[in-house]
């Protein structure tokens, strides 16, 4: 039975800091060799997870969900009511989306997602968060100066728009439902999915840009 003592872990961290190779790539190599030797991992499974989160699971999934919400009002209602249940229609359920909550942007409201205490993110639907989402710069400022943060991303929020910041402190995971851009009337769901950006689903982009290359 593992002991769960904070002071012991802090001491182990200091030992590791002093004894492990200073280059992270070398630290990982040593860890992986050791885990294989101790029969705690199958390296082919490591490869397979990397492949899944590189090829299959990423923000394209979120984009498909947003595009459907833009074209199917009944789906949008279900999505806002229970994100976890709604994404099962796509088979997108999985890691960190057991309590998925969508927050909707409107002309009056802009939503921004952060995790100030670690880096919680709805992985099975958006993949891996960008590094900036995990940095002290973003985590510290998103709750205190969201307007300034948005400015840095080139987003100017007018004084008539209310900013709602969602700090993911529990196991709920948040995703922004951005507004459908004007000029996309009659677009198919598949075409709309091509223009939805990752940042628009985190909230560091306000207006989804109409990409000229989006194929009809």
């Amino acid at each position: 039975m593992t002991e769960h003592h904070s002071h012991k872990i802090a001491r182990i961290h200091r030992d590791l800091h002093n004894h492990l190779p200073s280059d992270p790539a070398l630290r990982v190599k040593a860890l992986e060799s050791l885990l294989i030797e101790k029969e705690l991992i199958d390296p082919r499974t490591v490869d397979a997870w990397i492949e899944v989160y590189t090829e299959e699971i990423g923000p394209k999934r979120g984009a498909q969900v947003v595009a459907r919400a833009w074209t199917d009002p009944a789906f949008k209602r279900r999505l806002l009511e229970n994100g976890t249940a709604a994404i099962e229609a796509f088979g997108f359920e999985g890691w960190a989306t057991g309590h998925l909550r969508l927050v909707e942007n409107t002309p009056q409201v802009h939503n921004l997602i952060v995790c100030t205490l670690c880096s919680c993110y709805p992985h099975s639907i958006l993949g891996f968060p960008p590094n900036w989402y995990k940095t002290a710069a973003y985590r510290s400022r998103a709750v205190r100066d969201p307007k300034g943060v948005l400015n840095e991303f080139g987003v100017d929020i007018g004084d008539d728009v209310e900013i709602r910041v969602w700090d993911s402190t529990a196991e709920l995971r948040y995703m922004v439902l951005p507004e459908r851009p004007a000029g996309t009337a009659g677009w198919t769901e598949a075409r709309l999915a091509q223009i939805v950006t990752r940042n628009s689903m985190i909230g560091t982009q306000r207006h989804v840009p109409i990409t000229p290359g989006a194929l009809a």
Binding site: L117, T135, A137, R141, E152
Partner: peptide, 11 residues
Amino acid sequence: LGGREGFGPIN
């Protein structure tokens, strides 16, 4: 980290 200052710009 929420509210701490001095971490500079976001990449």
